[in-house]
Nucleic acid binder design. Sequence first.
RNA 1: GCGCCUGUAGCUCAGCGGAAGAGCAACGGCCUUCUAAGCCGUGGGUCGGAGGUUCGAAUCCUCCCAGGCGCACCA
Length: 509
Amino acid sequence: MPAADPVARLAAELSDAVGAPIELERPGDPAHGDYATNAALRLAPERRQSPRELAEEIAASMASAPGVERTEIAGPGFVNLWLTDAWLVDALAAIVERGRDFGVGEPARRERIQVEMVSANPTGPITVAAARNGAYGDSVARLLEFAGHQVEREYYYNDSGTQMEKFRASVEARRRGEEPPEDGYHGAYVEELAASDEDPVPRMLEQVERTLDRFRVHFDSWALQSELEGRLDEFLPRLDTYEKDGAIWAPSSKYGDDDDRVLVRSPERGGGPTYRAADVVYLAHKLERSFDRAVYVLGADHHGTRRWYAAVAQMLGYDPARIEVLLYQLVHLTSGGEQRTMSKRRGDVVFLDDFMDEVGVDAARWYLVNRGPDQTIEIDVDLAAERSQKNPVYYVQYAHARIAGILRNASAEQNDDLLPSEPLAPEERDLIKRLLEFPATAAEATERRGPQGIPVYAIRVADDFHRFYHEHRVLGSNAEAFRLALVRATQNVIARCLDLVGVEAPERM
RNA sequence: GCGCCUGUAGCUCAGCGGAAGAGCAACGGCCUUCUAAGCCGUGGGUCGGAGGUUCGAAUCCUCCCAGGCGCACCA
């Protein structure tokens, strides 16, 4: 573990002292010390020793390690330890030294990763449902970058399928003063598009990009289905396809998919390539561009395609481990307690732009990433704006702004020794320990592809900070140098957390 | 029928092998001091149910119940 993570370094030092791997965790109850380890409980079976006895030995070995003030055996064999103020202040100094980069990962192998997200068909404006894809996917992308990887974001859109034809037909119908076809698009935006003679698709795409920019999801590249389909002949031979009922099939069931899939329709069904054909080309196109890993961000209604992508990778001769499909559950809207279904075709949707107008960009991003991807999001449209006033995002931002206020009033930095003459107060120790959790928290959120861990952690940081702020004066205090460092480190960690979920860190509120 | 996901405080949700949490809602306190968008306190839970694994299970395994989403030559 890098020296940039003081807790990891301490754990390594203790492991050396004890001669066994020591993992440290922060106990929920402060009476159980600054950190605790269950090493004795884990080791007892293989050492054929009682956990308590082993804990005694471990505690004795750790007692002399630098930074350890005292140890204690507790419960069935936990070892609780208390650290010296000097250790905590040194750790704080290490955080301050890293600045905004505290917690940056140092991966064993730096990967080049593509994250493909949103990819909604440009048949209408971005909805709140599609926004969850962006909020989730973009935060995962930011986490991967923070973990030390090189990330590119791509938007893939279907510009050649049935839905696009229906979309264009709907606009055409409006231009003729008619109702769009029954299975066409009926939203008010279709009428707006009909008012001009331009091709509605590029206009829709521009609007999509504008909306997502406002949502702080920015793309490096855009992939078009129509272009990919043109290269189908290159890849069909690599797939061991076969013909049945006049259609061309991929033998995906041999590679773990539930069924074989049609790539090219039979003549009586039009004979064109299916979207799955484009999937094949697109997947190859991703890996051809020398991405080590291609991440798909898909709504849970697409979970059936998970096996399909893995099968495609294998059929093409690629390692399926290079393909990663991230799923998130859907967004449900309620209005006055009534369930509303989101259908772009019926126009019964909440558009992201309206949602952002209503609750603000910060609350919108926070709201959509705050829940785990496996959790269905329920949004009561009527209460959204009202609730946004109480969104915890402001609690976190407020901590950042409060610190900015202190720093505005601070005089030029002096190079005093940080260690205060008085013992550290509980609020100071708690805040330092909280900040020290950040590298592990970020790493875990990245590995689990669970960005919701970041806002949850940020709330705890803000919580510890507000408590500290309430109890202790920074400027003009005897411990000013130390507290300024503490407050700076806190601000950096909060700003980083907010950035990881695409939320701004205001200087004033 | 098969597959994926979910069931934790009144509500919305974290936690996913180590000693049950947050926000909102309810009630009661705290501003001559760096931002009260803040702080402190009170009440509130058989972690859907039943078995199992483990020194230890909300967390892992099995079954059951309830809900969401899928199972196209649509995307």
